[in-house]
């Protein structure tokens, strides 16, 4: 390919990214806790915020609601178990990351880090994954063990005739 051969190692386009440019965008949180901000929260505080800002869409206590449950419940006979944080989410850090970036749906990006810690604590507690008295922060959140984690496997499908 003549193009690849003649590609210079760099074109010199774009500008170096400054810390001031990176920091506000670099909001992702990883399972090992990388990216978690300072601050902390508790389920008790979270319960209050949840009732005010979340329950309208996700139901009182995170069950029911027009946009889906967030908390494990026993399904009615003959019904499938709803896939929620408690039984389906493999990493607790994802709860923090997702709420901070995307919720409340109608006001994304409006929560403080403290609020997000408290809401995460509340939802983990409601799902029986975190002690209701404990403080959730950058140290404790990555340690929360999620029951579904052991179920997750990478893609086992392969090219070729076998059906997966």
């Amino acid at each position: 390919d003549p193009k690849v051969d003649s590609l210079p190692s760099r074109f010199g386009l774009g500008k170096p990214a400054t810390i001031a440019q990176i920091t506000p965008l670099d909001i992702d949180v990883r399972p090992d806790g990388q990216g978690l901000p300072a601050g902390s929260g508790t389920a008790t505080t979270g319960a209050v915020i949840f009732a005010a800002k979340c329950a309208a869409c996700h139901g009182a206590g995170g069950v029911g609601g027009p946009n889906g449950s967030l908390v494990t419940t026993t399904p009615a006979p003959g019904k499938r178990t709803e896939k929620v944080i408690g039984n389906y989410w493999p990493y607790a850090t994802t709860v923090f990351d997702y709420i901070r970036r995307a919720m409340p749906f109608s006001q994304p990006g409006s929560l403080t880090n403290e609020e997000v810690y408290s809401l995460t604590a509340y939802l983990l507690t409601a799902n029986k994954l975190f002690d209701e008295k404990a403080v959730l922060n950058a140290q404790t959140l990555p340690k929360v063990v999620m029951p579904a984690q052991k179920l997750f496997v990478p893609d086992d499908r392969k090219a070729g005739p076998e059906i997966h």
Partner: peptide, 11 residues
Amino acid sequence: DAPWQTREETS
């Protein structure tokens, strides 16, 4: 160095 396990690739 590792996946982020975002909500869209887990839930």
